[in-house]
Simulated scan of single mutants.
Amino acid sequence: MSADITFIGLFLQASLLVKAVMLLLLALSVISWMMIFQRSSVLSRASREARLFEDKFWSGVELSNLYHEVSHKVTEPCASESLFKAGFKEFARVRKGGHTSPEALMDATYRAMRVSMSREVDKLETHLPFLATVGSISPYIGLFGTVWGIMNAFIALGEVKQATLAMVAPGIAEALIATAMGLFAAIPAVIAYNRFSHRVEKIENGMINFMEEFSAILHRQAIAKKEQAGA
């Protein structure tokens, strides 16, 4: 057995199954990093656009004008804009029908915003289950490759009359690389999943707070319109 203890050398000396395990873990790691960079960009943009929209919302702009602006936006609206658009559209639609109490009007509006928020959260959580899966299974895949490689090393060792450390070291080393690669794939995926889950939760909490404040504004408008109609 050759004693070429380098990463490439150990990979080339490994059995076909251990090579397959290493290549699988390498592929999982590459895909995970691609998703990590993509999700980081998406969540950063979502947080930034939410702050910009809420600043504009609280600047005192007329809600109908803001709705018109969001509805005719060329680019895809951010999560808060979609929430506002769904709520204001439902509010205007139900109020136009007339003969609706403020409570029933707000109930319909709130449901529309909840549905919109659920869709937006689903978009933000895209790829997170994959990162969680990679973080969970990669160490076990690597461990499987290690066990298989060590087993083959000892089988080969049993076929010689006089065993030395130099003979068994490369086989054990190539097997342990599979575990190392499993950890290399799992650790960034777990860290990214936890970090991104926290960021999604933070954005979702911001959407919930905005939804409550926006609902309060619409409710006051509904009550004022009812009082005007009654007068």
Results as ranks from 00 to 15, higher is better:
215 S>M: 09
14 A>N: 01
99 H>Y: 10
191 I>A: 13
195 R>P: 00
51 R>N: 06
59 S>Y: 06
67 Y>R: 14
131 L>A: 08
79 A>V: 14
142 G>K: 06
179 T>V: 07
36 I>R: 02
173 A>C: 13
134 V>H: 12
161 K>L: 15
2 S>L: 14
132 A>N: 13
208 I>M: 07
198 H>C: 05
150 I>T: 14
138 S>C: 11
58 W>N: 13
65 N>C: 06
105 L>C: 07
4 D>Q: 09
207 M>R: 07
20 A>F: 10
179 T>K: 11
89 K>Q: 13
216 A>H: 13
224 A>C: 02
77 P>I: 09
35 M>L: 05
159 E>N: 14
153 A>S: 15
142 G>F: 08
214 F>P: 03
199 R>L: 12
197 S>W: 00
215 S>H: 04
110 Y>I: 03
195 R>F: 10
92 A>H: 04
132 A>P: 03
159 E>M: 15
8 I>N: 04
145 G>H: 12
5 I>V: 09
174 E>S: 09
7 F>L: 12
169 A>Q: 04
166 A>Q: 13
145 G>P: 12
197 S>C: 10
29 S>M: 02
131 L>V: 06
12 L>R: 05
183 L>V: 13
128 L>M: 08
139 P>G: 11
79 A>W: 13
106 M>P: 00
56 K>A: 11
101 S>W: 03
93 R>W: 06
18 V>S: 02
225 K>V: 07
204 E>W: 02
214 F>A: 10
26 L>S: 05
151 M>G: 11
33 W>S: 01
197 S>Q: 13
165 L>M: 14
32 S>V: 00
221 Q>S: 06
183 L>I: 15
179 T>H: 10
32 S>P: 02
60 G>Y: 03
88 F>H: 06
147 V>F: 04
174 E>H: 03
198 H>V: 05
114 R>L: 09
65 N>H: 11
47 S>I: 01
228 Q>G: 11
140 Y>N: 07
102 P>R: 09
226 K>L: 12
189 A>Y: 07
76 E>P: 06
229 A>E: 14
178 A>V: 05
64 S>Y: 04
35 M>I: 00
185 A>L: 06
69 E>V: 05
85 K>D: 02
158 G>W: 13
142 G>P: 06
43 L>V: 00
66 L>C: 05
198 H>A: 15
49 E>V: 11
154 F>L: 15
27 A>Q: 01
180 A>C: 09
147 V>K: 03
138 S>F: 09
13 Q>T: 01
204 E>F: 08
136 S>Y: 07
86 A>S: 14
3 A>V: 07
204 E>I: 01
65 N>P: 00
227 E>F: 05
48 R>W: 06
73 K>R: 15
146 T>Y: 07
61 V>Y: 05
109 T>N: 08
87 G>D: 00
95 R>A: 10
49 E>F: 02
24 L>N: 01
227 E>H: 07
191 I>E: 04
120 E>H: 08
220 R>K: 12
16 L>C: 03
100 T>H: 09
74 V>G: 02
214 F>M: 11
201 E>I: 01
37 F>T: 01
36 I>A: 02
61 V>F: 05
150 I>W: 12
155 I>D: 14
212 E>P: 00
190 V>Q: 09
8 I>A: 10
137 I>D: 07
74 V>K: 15
114 R>A: 06
